[in-house]
């Protein structure tokens, strides 16, 4: 028997494995026993109301958020292993932020080459060649010598995606990549993300773009109050009367009301 088209076969290796992760800010629990695994080439969308812990969960994957309980394994490396070179590991996990976080004092091309040279030890020429490939890919090759502030929000976010891709990541994390964009710029960023997904990039996206989730994601995870309430194939999650928790149902209804 073959697996359904939207579910990768079981023999594809797991890239990210999150097990029983809990996190507290003082007495307040932000993550409650979260478990999740992502296979190579899978596209995962995490959604949920604000404050549900979805961004926090995402940031545990590259060690930007510490956690008190549980285990996170990235590409076979356990994050809590004291021998792990966290900066090295982070360089293999691409991350795209809500507010782009390009370095404003550097040109577009310098943004792309900085970490390649300083972290991966690539030569300037090598780094630039790779930078050009990904700038081409996000359609911004003509803007390579501009400063971030001279670009629109959508363009900046596409540069940020290219910057992450230059590091040859095993997985790409997107933390609400379109939330701070003007509405007319959302599509250009989602197009780039859909293109990446089609090429087989492993992706975890925290986003409210349900249209994107429905069309591009393999799986949808719904979180509320630090807990993972749903983890279902996208098709099943979005289907009329699909498999979802009552809270996810209510959340989707609120999103789609207007």
């Amino acid at each position: 028997m073959t697996a359904p088209a939207d579910e990768p076969p079981a023999d594809v290796p797991v890239v990210i494995d999150i097990q029983g992760v809990s996190k507290w800010y003082g007495a307040f629990q932000v993550l409650n026993d979260c478990a999740l695994s992502v296979r190579r080439g899978e596209v995962l969308v995490i959604c949920g109301p604000s404050g549900s812990g979805k961004s926090t969960l995402l940031k545990t994957v590259n060690g930007l958020e510490a956690f008190q309980q549980g285990a996170v394994t990235v590409d076979g490396v356990r994050l809590d292993d004291p021998k792990v070179d966290l900066t090295r590991l982070r360089s293999r996990v691409g991350m795209v932020f809500q507010h782009f976080e390009l370095f404003p004092h550097l040109t577009v091309m310098q943004n792309l080459t900085l970490a390649q040279v300083k972290v991966l030890g690539r030569s300037q020429a090598e780094a630039q060649a790779r930078g050009l490939i990904y700038l081409e890919r996000v359609g911004l090759i003509d803007h390579r010598d501009k400063r971030p502030a001279q670009l629109s929000g959508g363009q900046q976010q596409r540069v940020a995606i290219a910057r992450a891709l230059c590091m040859d990541p095993v997985v790409m994390l997107f933390d609400e990549p379109t939330s701070s964009l003007d509405p007319e710029m959302v599509a250009e960023v989602l197009d780039v993300m859909a293109g990446l997904a089609a090429d087989g990039m492993t992706m975890i996206c925290v986003t409210h773009e349900m249209g994107f989730a429905r069309r591009v994601a393999d799986r949808v995870v719904f979180m509320d109050e630090g807990r993972i309430l749903d983890d279902a194939p996208a098709k099943a999650f979005f289907a009329e009367g699909g498999v979802r928790s009552p809270r996810a149902d209510a959340f989707l209804n609120r999103l789609l009301r207007y």
Binding site: N62, T87, R88, G94, E101, H105, L106, A115
Partner: peptide, 27 residues
Amino acid sequence: LPRGQWAAASALGLSRRQTLWLVVAPQ
């Protein structure tokens, strides 16, 4: 400086020292 700048540099694998000199100081 927005905390995100530290996070972005760190997500790219830059060390704290590299972040300070290459990202924070020039801004």
